[in-house]
Each structure stands twice: as structure tokens, then as C-alpha cells.
């Protein structure tokens, strides 16, 4: 547990010193939300699509954060040394996923705020519990899958284009679930709160499945053979 926290703390400290999230990823994600608004050009449509657009922006931003998180590790074979310090490679996986979670959660809060301001989405009493649960479960799923596919493409040439190609299809169930549940939480005509909770069940399953898969698969993926 200490190792997991130490690795997460290391990643967050790097983030704090370089400010990649604040200086690049948050502006990028906000820009995506603005561009969606310009492209769709209809306020009722935007309000209806707000939840989906927020999560789509989250996926795109997550791709950038994952690249960043593993660029740090591949420089100077840092990942090899990191693996030699811990008793089990899965600790590195969970440590990196944890720091990813903290950053993505902060981003999700910012983007939802932007949806309220830009798209006119409303957060009211009943939906708040559901909304927070969705944010947490979906962000966990996004973090574990991001970390897992991040190590797949780490060290590869052309990884910038490979990561989205590999990770986005896998993230499709998460996108569907998170978008629908968020829509329910924001109050929508097409989906009610109870159905929103049904989607949370899917998000929890998703996070558990890929969390365990990541813990198992991280070792053979991270192992260097030279």
C-alpha cells in the first residue's frame, strides 16, 4: 500500500511541478467543449448532448494524460528501476492509476462546471448523489484502462496515434454508461434516476474487470527483455 501511495505521490508531484494538466490538458478539454458548441450550433441540442460531450472530452483528455504519465517512465528506463523497487508490478499499476484518477477527477469536476456554464446543464438536489457516484466510478474505469493501455504503447514508436486506436474502442462501454448515467443525474426527459443507477452497476463492473485485468497484465507488459 505504501508503495502504491508513494508512486502516486511521485506522479502527482511531477504533475505539480510541470503543470501539464493545468497548462495543457484542462485548456484543451475546455476548448473541445467550446468547439462542440460551435459545431452543433443549437442550444436545446447542446443541453441534450451535454453529458455525452463532457465524457467525450474526458476520453480525449485522458489520452493526453496517459501519454504524459508514461513518457515520464520511459525516459532513461525509469520504469525498469521503478519495477525493481516494488515487491509486485501490480503496485506500480495501481500507483499510476491512482495518480491518474486524482487528475482525471479534478478534470471531470472542471468539465461539468463548464457544462453548467456553457451548455446550461443543471445539477439539482436529487441527482447530486448519482452524479458524484458516476464521476467516481467512471473515472476509476478510465484511469485503469488508460494506465493499462499506456504501458502497452510505452516505448513504442508512433505511440501517440496507437494509444487512442487501442484504448478508445475498449472505453466505449464506459463512455456509454458514464454519458447515460450523467444525463440521468443532470435531469433528462429520456432517462430517469433509477435507470441512471443501472448504468452505475455497469461502470462498477467495468472498473473491477479492467482493474483486475490491469493488475495481472501489467507485469508481462512492463517487463523489458533486453
Amino acid at each position: 500500500m505504501n508503495a502504491i501511495l508513494a508512486i502516486a505521490r511521485k506522479d502527482l508531484r511531477i504533475e505539480w511541478r510541470t503543470r501539464t494538466l493545468l497548462a495543457r490538458v484542462v485548456p484543451f478539454a475546455l476548448l473541445v467543449l467550446v468547439l462542440f458548441a460551435v459545431a452543433l450550433d443549437s442550444e436545446p441540442l447542446l443541453l441534450r448532448a451535454a453529458a455525452g460531450l463532457v465524457w467525450l472530452a474526458m476520453l480525449f483528455a485522458a489520452m493526453l494524460l496517459v501519454q504524459r504519465s508514461f513518457d515520464v517512465e520511459t525516459a532513461d528506463h525509469a520504469l525498469d528501476s521503478l519495477l525493481s523497487f516494488v515487491s509486485s508490478p501490480s503496485k506500480v499499476f495501481f500507483g499510476k492509476a491512482l495518480s491518474m484518477f486524482v487528475q482525471l477527477f479534478a478534470l471531470a469536476v472542471v468539465l461539468l462546471g463548464a457544462a453548467v456554464v456553457l451548455y446550461g446543464a443543471r445539477v439539482d438536489g436529487d441527482g447530486v448523489v448519482l452524479l458524484v457516484t458516476v464521476l467516481i466510478t467512471a473515472t476509476i474505469g478510465l484511469s485503469v484502462v488508460g494506465t493499462l493501455y499506456g504501458v502497452v504503447v510505452a516505448n513504442m514508436s508512433g505511440r501517440d496515434s496507437l494509444l487512442p486506436l487501442l484504448a478508445l474502442p475498449v472505453l466505449a462501454p464506459l463512455l456509454i454508461g458514464a454519458a447515460r448515467a450523467t444525463e440521468a443525474a443532470l435531469g433528462s426527459d429520456t432517462i430517469d434516476l433509477a435507470n441512471g443507477w443501472a448504468w452505475v452497476a455497469l461502470l462498477v463492473t467495468y472498473a473491477v474487470v479492467f482493474g483486475s485485468a490491469g493488475a495481472v497484465a501489467f507485469a508481462p507488459l512492463a517487463q523489458s527483455d533486453s
Partner: peptide, 17 residues
């Protein structure tokens, strides 16, 4: 590893759709 992860992914995609 990627091929085996796809085996996990497909039922989840199907179920969510």
C-alpha cells in the same frame, strides 16, 4: 495480452449496447 483484453472488452461492449 491485447488479444486477451479484447475478449474482456467485447462482452462489456455488447452488454452496454
Amino acid at each position: 495480452v491485447i488479444a486477451l483484453l479484447a475478449v474482456l472488452e467485447i462482452p462489456l461492449v455488447h452488454f452496454s449496447v
